Simulated assay, not measured.
Amino acid sequence: MGQVKVSINDRSYTIACGDGEEDHVRELAAYVSKHVTDLAEQVGQVGDARLLLMAGLMIADELSSAMQKTKMLEQELENLSSQRGSLMERTRDAENSLADVLDDASRRIEELARRIEAA
């Protein structure tokens, strides 16, 4: 099991993580730290717990928005897939109709050719 030292609001924390996850945990901590720093600049040093809570709520809000957008995009993708299936079916129907018309035209041309040869 790995361990990572991170710094948030000028305080160091040692975080346990899975082996190979150290860089990812550092990136996440840097993201949280940025939010805490921004908040501290806006509201002052109101205590680590409150700053971390506020940063956590801001990050949760970002996550909630991202999840809503993901849900909307998944629905849009499902709608587009459904439309694609419908359009492909219509294309197949049109191709079959065109093939029938061409077969009919070919038969009539052959019939005309036979009549001309017979005449």
Rank of each mutant, 00 (worst) to 15 (best):
M1T: 04
M1Q: 14
M1F: 14
G2K: 13
V4Y: 00
V4I: 00
V6M: 02
V6S: 05
V6F: 09
V6I: 11
I8N: 00
I8Q: 00
I8V: 02
N9D: 04
N9F: 02
R11T: 05
Y13I: 04
Y13W: 02
T14I: 09
T14A: 10
T14G: 03
I15P: 01
I15M: 02
I15N: 00
A16N: 12
C17S: 00
C17Q: 07
G18I: 15
G18F: 12
E21H: 09
E21Q: 07
E22G: 02
E22P: 00
D23R: 03
D23E: 08
D23Y: 07
V25W: 04
R26E: 02
R26V: 01
R26M: 01
L28E: 12
A29M: 00
A30Q: 12
Y31K: 07
V32E: 03
V32D: 03
H35P: 03
H35V: 15
T37K: 10
T37M: 07
D38H: 07
A40Y: 06
A40G: 02
Q42I: 06
V43Y: 01
G44R: 05
G44C: 09
Q45R: 08
V46E: 09
G47Y: 12
D48L: 08
A49Q: 13
R50D: 07
L51H: 04
L51K: 02
L52S: 02
L52R: 06
M54R: 10
M54F: 15
G56Q: 09
G56W: 15
L57Q: 11
L57F: 07
L57E: 05
D61Y: 04
D61W: 04
E62L: 03
S64V: 14
S64L: 10
S65H: 02
A66K: 08
T70N: 06
L73Y: 03
L73C: 01
E76I: 05
E76N: 06
E76R: 15
L77P: 10
L77R: 15
N79G: 13
N79Y: 14
N79H: 12
S82C: 15
Q83W: 08
R84K: 05
R84W: 10
G85S: 07
S86W: 14
S86D: 12
L87R: 06
L87S: 09
R90S: 06
T91E: 12
T91R: 04
T91C: 13
A94P: 08
A94I: 08
A94Y: 12
N96H: 15
N96K: 12
N96V: 10
S97T: 15
S97Y: 08
L98R: 05
A99V: 10
A99I: 15
V101E: 03
L102Q: 11
L102F: 06
D103Q: 05
S106A: 13
S106T: 08
I109C: 07
L112E: 03
L112T: 03
L112M: 14
R114F: 01
R114S: 02
I116L: 06
E117N: 10
